[in-house]
Design a protein around this nucleic acid. Structure first.
Lengths: 341, 341
DNA sequence: TTGAAAGCGCTAACAC
DNA sequence: GTGTTAGCGCTTTCAA
């Protein structure tokens, strides 16, 4: 079984208290005693029981991350990169990371948040993929439970977040297309409830408006953020609006699906039609043609989110920090001047 | 603060024990008492303190997953899909998933395993990306700590695993290329210490041998499993061995990099040269040309691995289960008969 | 410098 | 049916 302090104490004929203090490095333990304890602990293969310690200390040194996953073929490079960032940062502060997975907006998801906020087995939570009206955030605010979200919401709540400035990003990208000569630009928007999509769409609308270009409602279709979704939305767009010369997709995955769809129909992307995405996933540079997109440093965002949360947990902020990052425009081959017709 | 059973007990003027039993659904509690307890618990917003329960029960209902991550731009669709599978399965058994991240073969990684095996805060571990000589597995076997790995090793240890039959898979794929008429086939092999790579290479060698085809040592180059790595290895291959008509990459990411490299040099993939991968990541169908590959149902593997671990933890096996899955050959456009020259 | 005792929140054997 | 008691492994007053 597991070696405990009690075992060490018994073996040495001293009290548990002394063992505990020796191990913890308190100064009021005789040097010789300390050595004997350390030595014996080593020999017996002692290792502290974290649960017990945490129960006593009333802090878990664990942060929680509830992944919104759409089963079953769920595969989004965002998450591995984000988790790597969060996990590495957490580890460097000696925090554990507790991950659970739940379908977004499901009952089980809310239960998980409830449990997390009240179950006392995580000190704080990280939220991603915020929604316009985000129940999760409302819940945590109400409980005053520490959390940091990657993404904002449309509600007037004051909480800690780090977010991309998607509006500015898409404006940059849209302007790039306009500068190339495009006038009729389609937009595959993220699902309505996804807050990031809101900003991205807004950036598109503003850029068009600022250039006095009209946007027909049919130019905007919704996509579900997967390649498949991008492919389907592109099909709708091309069916209804063949006059479009460029398409911006709400993320790279959809952009890749959209390119695929265009290519199926014999269009040459980067010539007959321009396509752009958002995220700069590693594959964006490797698809054919390589994808023009907006770069988000997901790994760094993961780290930053985690660091902010740990600082928050430890009361190192007087006010919830809020960070906005401007994505970087990466121009590749999928965007070019419109075919002169 | 946190509402405890004690609070409920005090409020109702009954003992903590009764509260505990009412909540746990024991039958020896008066129906009326039970109702009052449940009701009050509800009103006061009680929620069990999991750490305390776990400490008492001496089981954590948590499984651990130590992700081998190569920082900093770590992005591998494998992990998000795998975690989703593990996480969903874990959740359905009411297990939590504790994730930590460490660079493979690092000291910190081994410390993490040590802590996990002895720290008593996870009931079992999941291992992925096994190595030929895998210290992690040796350690856990030695401690008799429950774990299931996705992947085998080259050592004679008896432990629970689920693995792809990479050898059979690659044989299928190699035979496909040979049947198309290819004779000079290159192989971008995974790093030497990666056990899966071992089997994949072996499948290639065997298929070639069975068809009495020679394999020149220069046809085999190592790649680091990223697109970049695939690109670089392909460059080496094409520089040294321009006569090659087909290349198999150790995974899809490298295959995509390899295609990119070939295309940069003006070769048409799926015509001038064939390229194939392994994994069938979702993007494989969306790159240009679409990638011939071997499908591994990662999500399902994640679920299965997790389920096996939970069964193992609960002593539902007399012998460590070992499962081998044959990947499915998915033929797409990146492979075709060699250009007749 | 060390030890006894209490307690973190919960469960479970045993008595009433 | 319900309460008393002990204990999971650890930390931390407080006294000695």
């Amino acid at each position: 079984m597991h070696v405990t302090q009690k075992d060490i104490a018994r073996k040495l004929g001293i009290s548990i208290t002394t063992v505990s203090r020796a191990l913890a490095g308190y100064s009021d333990v005789a040097e010789e005693t300390r050595q004997r304890v350390l030595q014996t602990a080593q020999e017996m293969g002692y290792s502290p029981h974290l649960l017990a310690r945490r129960l006593q200390k009333q802090r878990t040194d664990t942060i929680g991350f509830i992944m919104p996953t759409l089963a079953p073929r769920f595969s989004d490079p965002f998450f591995s990169e984000f988790i790597a960032g969060v996990g590495n940062e957490a580890a460097s502060h000696e925090y554990d990371l507790l991950v659970s997975t739940h379908p977004p907006e499901s009952e089980s998801e809310m239960k998980a948040y409830e449990r997390a906020a009240k179950g006392g087995w995580v000190d704080g939570l990280i939220i991603v993929r915020t929604r316009e009206k985000d129940e999760r955030i409302r819940l945590l605010c109400q409980y005053k439970f520490p959390f940091v979200s990657f993404g904002r919401t449309n509600e007037s709540l004051d909480f800690a977040y780090v977010d991309e400035d998607g509006e500015t990003g898409i404006k940059l990208l849209t302007q790039h297309l306009i500068d190339l000569g495009h006038r009729r630009i389609g937009f595959i928007r993220p699902p309505k409830d996804m807050m990031a999509g809101h900003f991205r769409l807004q950036g598109f609308m503003k850029a068009m408006a600022e250039n006095d270009l009209p946007v027909r409602p049919e130019w905007i279709v919704e996509g579900d953020m997967t390649q498949r979704g991008g492919e389907q939305s592109m099909a709708v767009l091309l069916d209804v609006q063949p006059g479009i010369t460029a398409v911006i997709a709400g993320n790279d995955l959809m952009a890749i699906g959209a390119m695929h769809c265009a290519q199926q129909r014999g269009l040459e992307v980067g010539k007959d039609i321009s396509v752009a995405g958002f995220d700069d996933i590693p594959l964006a540079a490797y698809v054919k043609p390589s994808l023009t997109t907006l770069r988000q440093p997901i790994y760094e965002i993961g780290r930053m989110t985690c660091r902010m949360l740990i600082d928050l947990i430890n009361g190192r902020f007087s006010h919830p920090p809020q960070v906005l990052l401007v994505p970087q425009l990466i121009i590749r081959s999928s965007t070019a001047p419109p075919a002169s017709d």
